[in-house]
């Protein structure tokens, strides 16, 4: 791949001065790739964690005790009402100060890396919204449909698994899509705790080579492409799960 595009971008730089050095300089190219991989990993991890939190939280809000429901509400309030950047700083510098260091033989490293903190913080941030999104779905499943399931002797769990969840998921999918898209974009904030993801890496590149407009363009294109792909995937799922005469 690199060998294929390098001559073109080198030529481009020579002839026009447009410096896309990440596409012809091996070192910068590797930096760019690793930034992309870390960004994608971070998005994937944060989205996965936020989904798990969302499903468990919404379920607990339905069946849990008063105390548990209160705790979940407090969590939602805390993480919906504070900026995600502050949350990242809080986790990394606030909680990170208390996590143990691991002896790596001569030097120490924190047990929880900046990347792991970013994933946790963003997962928890997105999860707060997902709890509410899943709850709206669960509550929108018509009560009589569940009574029918009950009358057919399905157990609570069977009803949840075969009736409530499939319907609730379809109901909340559109709002889930917008939250996951928003969460994917928010991963760029991991920049503030020095996670070497795309924003951080390209910022380093343009600091080194002073090619800000070119790298800005790459940054835009990267997020547009990744988020469009994610959105398309979720819309495809939505269309695939659409039911005749249900919810439209």
């Amino acid at each position: 791949m690199f060998e294929l595009i390098a001559p073109f971008f080198h030529d481009l730089y020579d002839k026009t001065g447009l410096n896309f050095n990440i596409f012809y300089d091996r070192y910068e190219y590797d930096r760019f790739l690793s930034g992309a991989v870390i960004s994608l990993k971070l998005m994937f991890g944060a989205i996965l964690l936020s989904l798990v939190i969302g499903i468990l939280g919404a379920w607990a809000q339905g069946v849990g005790s008063r105390v548990l429901r209160g705790a979940i509400n407090a969590y939602i309030q805390a993480f919906r009402n504070t900026p995600p950047m502050i949350q990242l700083l809080f986790f990394y510098f606030g909680l990170g100060a208390f996590t143990p260091q691991v002896d790596m033989g001569g030097y120490t490293e924190p047990l929880v890396s900046a990347f792991a903190w970013a994933m946790i913080a963003l997962g928890i941030f997105g999860g707060a919204y997902n709890v509410e999104i899943f709850r709206s779905g669960l509550e929108a499943v018509p009560r009589p449909t569940l009574e029918a399931s009950e009358s057919l002797c399905l157990s609570k769990w069977q009803t949840y698994r075969h009736v409530t969840l499939p319907l609730a998921f379809r109901i909340c999918l559109p709002s889930l899509t917008s939250n996951l898209i928003s969460l994917a974009k928010t991963t760029s904030l991991a920049y503030v705790i020095s996670v070497p993801e795309m924003t951080y890496v390209l910022n380093q590149v343009w600091s080194d080579t002073i090619n800000v407009p070119e790298m800005m363009l790459i940054l835009f294109v990267f997020y547009v492409a990744v988020v469009a792909l994610l959105g398309a995937g979720l819309h495809f799922l939505e269309r695939k799960l659409a039911l005749p005469g249900f919810g439209r």
């Binding site: 018509p142 449909t145 029918a148 009358s151 057919l152 399905l154 069977q158 075969h162 319907l167 039911l243």
Partner: peptide, 25 residues
């Protein structure tokens, strides 16, 4: 029991609606 509003499972076909409870229960 049969209800006024049918209360079928909208995500299952007619056949699957009929089959669900015998399979699971």
């Amino acid at each position: 029991i049969v209800f006024q509003q049918y209360n079928l499972f909208p995500h299952k076909t007619a056949l699957e609606n009929v089959m669900l409870a015998p399979l699971l229960v």
